[in-house]
Design a protein around this nucleic acid. Structure first.
Length: 437
RNA sequence: CGGGGCGUAGCUCAGCCUGGCUAGAGCGCUAGUUUUGGGUACUAGAGGCCCACGGUUCGAAUCCGUGCGCCCCGACCA
């Protein structure tokens, strides 16, 4: 993409409304624009990041055996009246009426709806287990939206729902999601740590919040230092294997938010615990028959008896992740995207845009990168070098190829946004490095 | 939902207390000169229903009332 053609409205100054760093940077880097409190429009660059995250989540869930569906944003009130949550949910739920005065709502979550879909179609134990998920916009009418996209009223969420015959089966479904989540976040370049969360009336060890570490995180966390050494992508375990050993290994390492932290409970001296801050980006839990019971989601078992399904649900805040990643990955100059979610891999800066010979070389580099399938944002604007550097750093692409005074000798500078390291190398070497990576 | 703050140019803000010239600055934008590897400098421009409605007054961005919007702290939450 040529920057001269692109819709990327960057800001030099910080908008007053944005207080936290990710919100400021998202506005300044031209990723989003706010349309009302807690509701955002996604501009081209921001939308690319959102879709990359979404795709990593999708692939991770598919691989774990979940199947993607798409449920509507608007739901009928009846379902929620059946589950009893219509009254309970309160003002957070945006209620609306259609032209026939029928009560509808903008879905804050989809347990009722998926249970309804499932119960009407699945009648025999032979059809379970199943795990269905979708990635859809949700609305919660937060009293006080804040932190930009991190706590908006409208947000994109992946939510999966598992259906099992037995609690043991539900446990397996849960463990699959546990593994899937660890891998999904790791693929995004994030260290996510599952922490035991409230399980409500059900109890047990089957509810975890996934927290990514970021200095500006909303809550304090304590965890075992060995967490840093873990790499879920390297665990030699598959979704059809017995996941118990893996689950044991990862749940036995201590990790707790400051609210739940119990001094002395870590198994190692508290002074050795890693203290950090974190942001919740995912939540998984088992809730048994909480919805299947009132909604009558049952199947016929092997003996002909009716069995109420055991369910779990598994959420990832997709739009929230955009903000969360920026909280975890930025510096004074701007965003530093992990490569897996970067809107473009390379920024190509032509510092001599008014020099025909230099421009010709940069155009060629641009073409070669495109032909090699590298996502590249080409700053071909007739701007000062300083402006280009500032914009490119702000926007946070992992690599910068800087074409300037060395161009006539076939040299460019390759800069790594994260380390800040810059090396003057030949065009060919720069291309190889960026393409090969 | 309790407490606080703020709405003036695209952005950041001054002016308001103590009402009165034609409503300002910096950045951004347009044109030109300049500069040419870290948001260059100069010149000339464009750009405003001063959040809305009502009131007080000869006169309101400024004072008063009501409403709306946005932000922050807390409670709540993915």
């Amino acid at each position: 993409m040529r920057l001269s053609q692109y819709f990327l409205p960057t800001l030099k100054e910080n908008p007053t409304e944005a207080q936290i760093v990710s919100h400021r940077l998202m506005l300044r880097a031209g990723l989003v624009r706010q349309t009302s409190a807690g509701i955002y429009a996604w501009l081209p660059m921001g939308y690319r990041v959102l879709r990359k995250i979404e795709q990593i989540v999708r692939e991770g869930q598919d691989e774990a055996g979940a199947q993607e569906v798409l449920m509507p944003t608007i739901q009928p009130a009846e379902l929620w009246q059946q589950s009893g949550r219509y009254e309970v949910y309160g003002k957070e739920m945006l209620r609306i009426k259609d032209r026939h005065e029928r009560e509808m709502l903008y879905g804050p979550t989809n347990e009722e709806m998926i249970t309804d879909i499932f119960r009407t179609s699945v009648k025999t134990y032979r059809d379970v287990p199943k795990n269905l998920y979708h990635i859809q916009w949700k609305f919660r009418d937060e009293v006080r939206p804040r932190f930009g996209v991190m706590r908006g009223r409208e947000f994109l969420m992946k939510d999966a729902y598992s259906f099992d015959l037995t609690k043991e089966g539900a446990r397996i479904s849960y463990q699959k999601m546990f593994l899937s989540y660890l891998r999904i976040f790791a693929r995004m370049g994030l260290q996510a740590i599952p922490m035991q969360a409230d399980t409500g009336p059900i109890g047990g060890d089957m509810s975890h919040e996934f927290i990514i570490l970021a200095e500006t995180g909303e809550s304090g966390v304590f965890c075992h230092p060995d967490w840093i050494k873990t790499d879920p992508l390297k665990e030699p375990v598959g979704y059809n294997d017995d996941l118990n050993p893996f689950f044991e290994k990862y749940t036995s390492l201590y990790a707790a938010t400051d609210e739940k932290h119990k001094p002395g409970a870590a198994g190692i001296p508290d002074s050795e615990l890693l203290q950090a801050r974190g942001i919740e980006v995912g939540h998984i839990f088992y809730f048994g028959t909480k919805y299947s019971q009132p909604l009558g989601a049952k199947v016929t078992g092997p003996n002909g008896d009716l069995i109420t399904l055991e369910m779990g649900s598994y959420g990832i805040g997709v739009s929230r992740l955009v903000g969360a990643i920026i909280e975890a990955c930025h510096d004074e100059a701007g965003i530093i995207w992990p490569e897996a979610v970067a809107p473009y891999k390379v920024g190509l800066l032509n510092l001599k845009a008014n020099d025909a010979a230099a421009t010709k070389i940069c155009d060629e580099i641009y073409t070669m990168l495109q032909q090699a399938g590298v996502e590249v944002l080409y700053d071909d604007r007739d701007e000062r070098a300083g402006t280009k550097f500032a914009d490119c750093d702000l926007v946070g692409l992992p690599w910068q190829i800087i074409g300037g005074r060395g161009l006539d000798k076939g040299m460019v500078e390759l800069k790594n946004r994260k380390s800040g390291e810059r090396t003057e190398i030949s065009i060919e070497d720069a291309l190889n490095k960026v393409i090969g990576k």
